[in-house]
Amino acid sequence: MNTKDMFDHLAALFPDLELQLDEDVPCIIVPPDAIREVGLQLRDDEQLLLDSLMCLSGVDFADGTLGVVYHLHSMLHNHKLTVKVVVPVENPHVQTVERVWRTADWHEREAYDLIGVIFDGHRDLRRILNPYDWEGHPLRKDYEVPEFYNGMKVPY
């Protein structure tokens, strides 16, 4: 399926969602409380079969919104799709897709750890790269490095 066909197919599948067409990879924007449903559809749709989540990234857009970007790929059809979720920074709740693609398990933990997006329904949402008792989410654009961590001086 080429990009145009895929775009049309997506438009038919999700009439309510906002679609963008980049040069090579189509992109859909999904509301945070629908991502699980959409994810399941994307994964199981015969023509899409986006069974592999290449990457899940949390982004702080620095305009009062946080984002989660899903890069999907189909092993069988060898096509790609980008899915975006945008949430306000005050209420950064996104549905988890941990049970749709297992890759998302650790990536969501990472996005939670570094950006502070909270994935509702995740079974094990702990910090992953930072220590479990770290405060704040370092990849936020307004993040300030703490002076001390457990009595140790942080900025060196």
Binding site: M54, C55, S57, R102, W106, L139
Partner: peptide, 24 residues
Amino acid sequence: YVISDGSANPFRVKARGPSFVNLS
């Protein structure tokens, strides 16, 4: 995953490491 805002510094660089995913 690189996001550029047109400046000289990347706005966001996310690296998807293979070991990270394979280990999970």
